[in-house]
């Protein structure tokens, strides 16, 4: 239902998201990543507030930017805390509902229905200016689902909600997903969304790092050997030394650059602690070492630990 094709977006020099290609199917999908990973940028591209600098974004087969046809079927709950502080919750949801084209005959009933769904019946008559974070979150969700959209985009919807609120909101989202809608929830804490879905998109520094089942990705990270590239003056001698270590599985040389070697290991931690000693003993000059797999694992660890 949502498709990104080599989509990139940068703000002057700062990259928001970089070359993201993915498809988001119906059902519940969690968009995970640490702060500044580009989650909000991606959601703003999907909701058509931003235009991709490069590549394409399609929602329900159409370009979303300023496209009323897309918005007819798209609900969005932004991450901002600001709102129309002078309006009451009812007024706000009614205005939003009216703007999505709900006929006036059914509007009032629909507003009450939605407000009840998000558990705001008691407080919706008060001005939004006096709301707590949790209430603001709920009323934002209410305006996002009022027109029963096919695609629901929720940017950090759990922020500021208490455990009861989380459970209630989770139920609302799951019901939508069960009805065959495409629901995207962004978060920077894995535990928050684990209760809802195991289908995740993992972002880091603007790039899409993984897409799929969270447990599957997890086990891949664990079982997959960890690669480390080292650039040194004496690659072959260093390779010989590292092969002595029991947890190093193999070494490859770069065919273009004789000073580069790539090794695989099951336990990067042990390797990293032993590596300085090897370098000192052998008198190697190491120009650079890096691990392409490091980021994903680090990100994952961050998400799990919160």
């Amino acid at each position: 239902m949502i498709a990104l094709e080599n989509a990139s977006r940068w703000y002057q020099q700062v990259i928001g998201i970089n070359d993201v290609t993915c498809q988001i199917p119906p059902g519940m999908t969690a968009l995970l990543g640490p702060n500044g990973a580009g989650k909000s940028t991606m959601l703003k591209l999907i909701t058509g507030q931003l235009k991709p600098t490069k590549g394409r974004v399609q929602v329900l087969g159409q370009e979303p930017f300023a496209n009323p046809k897309v918005y007819q079927k798209l609900g969005y709950c932004p991450e901002i805390e600001n709102n129309y502080d002078e309006m009451t919750g009812y007024e706000f949801v009614t205005l939003m509902g009216a703007m999505t084209g709900i006929p006036s005959a059914t509007l009032k009933n629909r507003v009450h229905e939605v407000v009840e769904m998000v558990g705001m019946t008691v407080n919706a008559g008060r001005k939004i200016g006096g709301y707590s974070k949790g209430m603001r979150q709920r009323i934002k969700v209410a305006q996002g689902i009022i027109h029963d959209p096919d695609v629901l985009i929720l940017d950090e919807p759990m922020n500021g909600l208490d455990p009861v609120g989380r459970r209630e909101m989770t139920k609302v989202f799951l019901d939508m997903a069960a009805a065959g809608k495409c629901v995207v929830v962004s978060s920077h804490i894995l535990y928050e969304v684990e209760a809802m879905t195991s289908n995740i998109l993992l972002m880091h520094r603007g790039r899409l790092m993984a897409q799929g089942n969270v447990y599957h990705i997890r086990s891949l990270i664990d079982s997959h050997p960890h690669r480390i590239t080292i650039t040194t003056s004496d690659a072959r001698r260093l390779a010989a030394k590292t092969l002595d270590l029991p947890y190093v599985l193999g070494v490859k040389f770069d065919s273009h650059d004789p000073r580069k070697l790539e090794l695989e290991t099951h336990s990067p931690h042990l390797f990293y602690s032993a590596f300085p000693d090897i370098v000192l003993e052998g008198g190697f000059v190491v120009e650079n070492y890096e691990s392409p797999d490091n980021n994903l694992e680090a990100v994952f660890r961050y998400l799990v630990n919160g």
């Binding site: 909701t47 058509g48 507030q49 300023a66 009323p68 046809k69 897309v70 918005y71 007819q72 798209l74 969005y76 932004p78 901002i80 600001n82 709102n83 129309y84 502080d85 939003m96 703007m99 999505t100 084209g101 305006q143």
Partner: peptide, 15 residues
């Protein structure tokens, strides 16, 4: 300024 423009621009009403 109050960031509420998102709500208006993501409605199915032409800008």
């Amino acid at each position: 300024e109050q960031k509420t423009i998102v709500y208006l621009l993501t409605r199915p009403v032409a800008r």
